[in-house]
C-alpha cells in the first residue's frame, strides 16, 4: 500500500544523490551526443509525467490535453527569444516566464473546466489542446504552420547539448522533489481524497475547487518551463512538434503505467516508457510502435489498474511477509 505518510527506505536518499551526481557529471566525460539526447528526452518525459501526475494521478482528473501547456511554454519562449534575439544566458528566466504563462492559462481554463468531472473533464481538455493548436497555427506572429526559428547562437553544439541536459535534469529534480513533497503533505492527501470520492472529500472539509485548481496550475507550470527549454534545445519549433497529441498520449500512458498518485510510480512509468519509446522509434516503424502503445493502454487497464509501482511494492511486501 502507498501511504500519505513517508515510508522509510534505508539509504534511499544516498542512492538518489549518487545517481543524480553521476548523471550530473556525465556531460563532463564527453559521451556520445546520442546518449546525452536520449537522457535529455527521459528527463523531459519525467517532468511531463510527474506534472500530469499532480492533476491526473493524485486528483484523478484526466487531462487529455496537457501537451497544450508544454506547447504554450515552448511558444512563449521561442517567440521572445527570436523576436528580441536573446542570448543563451536568458534561457532559464525566459523559460520560467514560459512556465508562468502556461500556469496563467491553466488558471483561467482550469477555473471553469474543473467543475466538470470524469469524462466531461477529459473531453474538454482534449478540445482545449486542439483549440490552442489551431490558434497558434493561425495567428500570424507565431509563424503559422511553418513554426518559429530561434536565433542561432555562437556557442558550440556540444556545449548547448550539455547545457540543456543540465537544465532539464535540474528541472526534473525540482519536479520530483515537489511531487514527493506533495505526496506526503496535507495537499496530497486532499487530492487523493478527491480522486477517491469528491463529495465525501468536500464533506471532510477539503476545499476541492481550490486545491484542484492549485494542482492543475502546478501541473501546467512545469511543462511550460520544460517547453521553454525544449524550444531552445531544438532551435526550431512548429505546432505539429510541440502540440503533438502523441505527447499527451505518452504522458497519460506513462503515469498510468507506473501508477498515478505516487511520485515513484510516475517516475518509473516515464523512465521505462521513454526507453521503450526510443527503442521503438529507432527499430520499428511509427505505426507499429503506436499499435504497441495501444495494446499497452489496454493491458494496463485490464491487468495493472493500480500501475506497475503498486504491483512491485505489493509483490515485495508479500514476499517480505512470507519470509517471516
Amino acid at each position: 500500500m502507498r501511504s500519505i505518510w513517508p515510508g522509510r527506505i534505508t539509504g534511499g536518499w544516498i542512492v538518489s544523490v549518487i545517481i543524480l551526481c553521476s548523471l550530473g557529471i556525465l556531460p563532463l566525460l564527453s559521451p556520445k551526443v546520442y546518449f546525452l539526447s536520449l537522457l535529455y528526452m527521459v528527463f523531459l518525459y519525467v517532468v511531463l509525467a510527474e506534472s500530469w501526475n499532480l492533476i491526473g494521478g493524485f486528483a484523478g482528473y484526466l487531462s487529455f490535453g496537457h501537451v497544450a501547456f508544454f506547447g504554450i511554454g515552448a511558444y512563449t519562449t521561442a517567440f521572445l527569444m527570436s523576436t528580441f534575439h536573446l542570448p543563451v544566458a536568458s534561457v532559464l528566466p525566459i523559460s520560467l516566464l514560459g512556465g508562468l504563462v502556461s500556469a496563467a492559462v491553466a488558471l483561467v481554463v482550469g477555473y471553469p473546466c474543473l467543475r466538470l468531472r470524469g469524462p466531461y473533464f477529459a473531453v474538454i481538455t482534449l478540445c482545449f489542446a486542439f483549440v490552442v493548436q489551431i490558434l497558434v497555427e493561425n495567428l500570424p506572429f507565431f509563424g503559422g504552420v511553418e513554426g518559429l526559428w530561434l536565433t542561432p547562437t555562437k556557442e558550440t553544439v556540444a556545449f548547448q547539448r550539455a547545457l540543456y541536459y543540465e537544465l532539464m535534469m535540474g528541472l526534473m529534480v525540482v519536479v520530483l522533489l515537489v511531487v514527493r513533497g506533495i505526496e506526503h503533505s496535507r495537499l496530497g492527501a486532499g487530492l487523493i481524497a478527491i480522486r477517491e470520492d469528491e463529495d465525501v472529500a468536500q464533506c471532510l472539509g477539503i476545499p476541492a475547487p481550490r486545491i484542484k485548481l492549485l494542482a492543475f496550475v502546478l501541473s501546467a507550470f512545469f511543462p511550460g518551463v520544460a517547453g521553454g527549454f525544449h524550444a531552445c534545445y531544438l532551435t526550431y519549433i512548429s505546432p505539429v512538434i510541440v502540440f503533438d497529441v502523441m505527447i499527451s498520449i505518452l504522458i497519460v500512458l506513462m503515469t498510468l503505467l507506473g501508477g498515478g498518485g505516487s511520485w515513484a510510480g510516475a517516475l518509473l512509468g516515464a523512465v521505462s516508457l521513454s526507453f521503450v519509446n526510443e527503442f521503438l522509434t529507432t527499430f520499428v516503424r511509427a505505426e507499429i510502435a503506436r499499435i504497441l502503445y495501444g495494446m499497452l493502454f489496454i493491458g494496463v487497464i485490464l491487468f495493472l489498474p493500480n500501475g506497475l509501482w503498486e504491483f512491485i511494492r505489493n509483490a515485495s511486501f508479500k514476499r517480505a511477509h512470507a519470509e517471516r
Binding site: L62, P119, G294, I298, I301
Partner: peptide, 18 residues
C-alpha cells in the same frame, strides 16, 4: 467510464495505425 475511455483510447490507436 474513465477506465473505458482509456481502454478504448488504446483500441482507437490500434485501429488507426493498423
Amino acid at each position: 467510464m474513465v477506465a473505458s475511455m482509456v481502454l478504448t483510447f488504446g483500441l482507437a490507436i490500434i485501429l488507426e495505425n493498423t
